[in-house]
Design a protein around this nucleic acid. Structure first.
Lengths: 207, 207, 207, 207
DNA sequence: GATGAATGAGTCTTCATTCAT
DNA sequence: CATGAATGAAGACTCATTCAT
């Protein structure tokens, strides 16, 4: 490998690292203050540079949001797809999906918050059409799983499936708002407790 | 009562009605587009007037949000306080609180959405200190109820109480994002199914 | 006519007058400094208002240019069409077209300068497609006239028609750069001398 | 001559060549898009380098325009001065000046376009004072020639001299906007036809 | 000679707000 | 009560320019 080749690789990697840093900072600020309520200058301040300098790395505020969200969703679907590919009964699949979801909150907390709070507005923009597509795929994945589980006799059949779907969806993702990656409970424990609640309920047994 | 006095009352009432109308419109637009992403002009358009005219009724965008949110919270706490005053065991109280919450989503859907999405940012402003206060009261109300329920043997004791609290809180309020006042399921049915899930779990019995 | 109706008309007319004033100012500044080199603030200064206030009257800098140019072209084609409708031989038609062109420079000097200097760049924008359309119509109008004149024996046949076309076109419009509406020579005199040069040449007769 | 000296000369020459290349590219881009509307980055792109790299060769955007324009004007005046030094009657001089002008359009097309479109704005800057000086010299050269020609009986005396001056000036230079160095008509042919029009007019003889 | 990252001033535009009518 | 015109601050974004490497 020529020295020049090595140089190019080193700088390309360095640039990628810088972009990732800025993106993480941006995600945090967007998550904390809301996308619309955050000025590009606040992002730049948090990243230790001037507002104009951000545009060396990113085209626009929008493309920052785009990279943040698509990075999160790509990662999420990679882990979902692996789980679905494994097969297994509905109950086991549900557990793994929930665990994967909390793990993804652990890795992408600010992105998840952004997704939760802004995806509805952003999806109006054709550039963010993939948000709706993801949402659709997500919904059918869960609806299929829930009806299959009811057929298999694993889940109660007396509940409205789409209500259960929303119930699970909401409770999982909304946790990003309070989840602390350095907190007392690791994501895997939260997932466990969460599954206990969802599956067995909070009522004392035999009640 | 003098005629002039009656006139004054009539116009005061009319003004109050107009304010309420505008406020409802504003709440809807804020809920749909987000508070920061909504311009006062969009609110005015939706209310059938010009931007400047809104300032006859309200002295700022902020005070609209203020009235929307405090109106909702006042109403919510009125119904919560009535339930708490009644007494009753933890399980029954929990049911009534959840029912009251969904009823309040029915009555104040846009306000609830606004509350969910913006209260964190708004609460930074001293004017909205009451949001944090409400949040604090809300938290202790639920924590008390949940620990009492565990003591009474009504609720499982093996779950992290503050996790259960967040779990219930989030799922209830996030429902405002998809609840449709004119939809298939009335708020009371949703509350029932929701309680079934939370109390008994979605797992088939005897599994 | 009701008083309210009269009011509406008065204010609509007043607004139209204000717009026209601003537009004229803008056209002058654009013509003097170039469209791209002129900031919206300079236009606002010249119009005696703040930059933001311009946006009450106009959507964008671009739409100011649009109105300036289309106003000029509409007026120009109205007078051209009238001349073409009259008929007459090629020589007479040419004279009337040239006179109409100088008259239009008199009425729309800054717009003509803007047209000359910026239409090529602006026409890249679909919004300004009409500039190219006008250019095309203009070219065929003149080419038809010149070949008809050569056929009628009124114009020399030994010259390249498209060269003559460009020659006439350019010289007429470029005059907007130095024409002074309050100057020594009125537009009609310039047109006369211009026609003398173009038709008979500057060479002394019998030379 | 020492080898080191030869090296220095070779690199100095290479540098000069690179500068000239870049300058030509810049002139083309400026001519096509307008000076103000062209960013230094577009110039750099066209020259196959990054924006920052241009500053190794030139110290500002302005100095590029400066070199482009002064290069053109120096060349132009060199050929004009040669013609004027030759002497000869007004008619012959006029023909040679016009031919020289079209030849200069052939050699410096983009620079001429730049000159035509931007010299008025640029001349406000003291650095470009020479533009006005050239303009002044140009005007007196032509006015002298035209009045001498009228005195000599070569040119008609019934036309306004300063109008004729502008007429000739404009038609010659504006041709840079459509002249194509590789087109059907070479510059010398255009000059010939142009002279035929200007001197004899487009009217059929004996009309 | 050239690159890549950053600067800081400036651009167009939006928007909450004011106020005379 | 409402309108229409304007304000002024702020926002996203561009760009000529600099400079360490």
């Amino acid at each position: 490998m020529s020295p020049r080749r090595r140089d190019a690789e080193r700088t390309a990697a360095a640039r990628e690292r810088r972009r990732a840093e800025i993106l993480e900072t941006a995600a945090e600020v967007f998550a904390r203050q809301g996308y619309a309520a955050t000025s590009i200058r606040q992002v730049a301040d948090a990243a230790g540079m001037l507002a104009g300098s951000l545009y060396y790395h990113f085209d626009s505020k929008e493309s920052m949001a785009d990279e943040i969200l698509s990075g999160f969703l790509d990662d999420l679907w990679t882990s979902y797809d692996a789980i679905l590919a494994e097969g297994g009964d509905a109950r086991a699949t549900l557990e793994r999906l929930v665990e994967a979801s909390f793990a993804s909150i652990h890795r992408h907390r600010p992105a998840v918050v952004l997704y939760q709070n802004e995806s509805r507005h952003l999806a109006l923009n054709p550039r963010f059409a993939y948000l709706d597509e993801s949402q659709t795929r997500f919904r059918s994945m869960w609806m299929d799983l829930l009806t299959r589980g009811a057929d298999e006799g694993a889940f109660r059949a007396d509940l409205d499936a789409s209500l259960v779907y929303r119930f699970i969806r909401d409770t999982v993702w909304v946790a990003a708002n309070w989840y602390d990656p350095h907190g007392r409970l690791p994501a895997s424990d939260i997932a466990k407790q969460y599954l206990a609640m969802v599956l067995e309920g909070i009522q004392a047994p035999g009640e």
